[in-house]
């Protein structure tokens, strides 16, 4: 179980990590990085799966379905958008 102070510690350490990880990023990568972190919170899909999995009534199932649908869109859309942007920064293709 993750609760009480354990939860707070995780929260604090993860917050500092996030801050440190991008503190020295060049401006040219700001947009790809925003897109990349947009992809990372797509992990919400695993939570949405559990939420739909233990949904009981029709209403719960409908909301759960929406959750999984939106989360999958977040993850896949965020991934493709980021990859497409970063492709632009590949070494020259000779043009």
């Amino acid at each position: 179980m993750i609760e009480g102070f354990t939860a707070l510690y995780i929260f604090m350490l993860a917050a500092f990590t996030g801050y440190e990880v991008i503190s020295r990023v060049p401006v040219i990568l700001h947009t790809p990085l925003m897109s990349g972190s947009n992809f990372v919170h797509g992990i919400v899909v695993v939570g949405a799966m559990v939420a739909l999995g233990h949904a009981e009534t029709g209403v719960e199932m409908a909301i759960g379905f929406v959750a999984v649908f939106l989360a999958a869109g977040n993850a896949v859309g965020g991934y493709i958008a980021t990859v497409r942007m970063l492709e632009m920064f590949q070494p020259k293709k000779g043009n």
């Binding site: 993750i2 995780i10 917050a15 925003m34 695993v46």
Partner: peptide, 21 residues
């Protein structure tokens, strides 16, 4: 809420790095 460590960590990291950005 769901006791899911991956969501907690990934979400928090995005939350703080996004705030910095």
């Amino acid at each position: 809420v769901l006791q899911n460590a991956a969501m907690i960590i990934a979400g928090t990291v995005v939350g703080s790095s996004g705030t910095l950005l």
